[in-house]
Amino acid sequence: MFYLFCPYCGEHREEEEFHPRGQAHLSRPEDPDGCTDEEWGDFIYFRTNPRGLHHEIWVHAVGCRKFFNVTRDTQSYEILETYRMGSAPRITDLNDKQQSREVQA
């Protein structure tokens, strides 16, 4: 069971309080009506689904109800950082793990 740090509550809480909501940093096309079927399908269905470093959205469903981002290793399940909506990840490469530990400490 994961132990997630909610960047809004400022606390680690149990996974049972959260829901995962898939890949982060996807943005809805500015002009949906101008999208081809292929572009629209890519937006709603196609995902990077990496083995390794993954930026994903979680929601603190039974806590503050805020959505936030998590950088997580989908192989080891190690959580490298959590950060608020609208901000960019600090870790974009698994080799930056060391940096993450410093960030969390």
Binding site: H19, R21, S27, R28, I57, V59, A61, R65, K66, F67, M85, G86
Partner: peptide, 13 residues
């Protein structure tokens, strides 16, 4: 409710 929050918080903050 979660759907509304999702769009508000992630797409149209």
């Amino acid at each position: 409710l979660e759907w509304l929050e999702l769009y508000h918080q992630t797409e149209w903050p």
